[in-house]
């Protein structure tokens, strides 16, 4: 899949100061457990899954998710953050095969 590792990060368009808002994201990823067998060849499909997702708010690590093969294919994650000031939310995520990606979104605090 060419699009492995592509992500969509969604935040509210505008938040007021002090408000707790939701950050949602979806990553395109097969999330193979390493336990499944290919039905045609009978060979075990090697594990391929997201290992961690780091959320940086203005270059400060605010949340770290340690993922595992127990998470569904094309994983969805949601966390909450408290709005203090405007800035960028950078999401850095990696998989067990060395894939590493990042995605940034702006946060507007009114």
């Amino acid at each position: 899949m060419a699009s492995v590792g592509r992500a969509i990060v969604r935040v509210p368009r505008k938040v007021s100061k002090g408000q707790v808002f939701k950050v949602q994201m979806v990553i395109t990823h097969p999330m193979e457990t390493g336990l499944r067998k290919d039905k045609k060849t009978g060979k075990i499909i090697p594990a391929h899954y997201i290992t961690h997702i780091d959320f940086y708010l203005n270059d400060q690590l605010v949340t770290k998710i340690h993922s595992s093969p127990g998470i569904s294919k094309n994983p969805y994650f949601a966390i909450k953050l408290k709005a203090e000031q405007s800035g960028t939310l950078k999401v850095v995520y990696a998989d067990n095969k060395g894939g590493k990606w990042e995605k940034s979104v702006n946060i507007n605090v009114a």
Binding site: V20, K22, T33, L57, Q60, L61, V62, T63, K64, I65, H66, S67, S68, P69, G70, I71, S72, P75, Y76, F77, A78, I79, K80, L81, K82, E84
Partner: peptide, 21 residues
């Protein structure tokens, strides 16, 4: 074991949602 989320005061609330197998 499915997931671990490190919470910090910047989260405001303890909340996590995902989809699992």
């Amino acid at each position: 074991y499915v997931a671990q989320v490190d919470i910090s005061p910047a989260n405001g609330e303890v909340y996590f949602a995902t989809r699992v197998k």
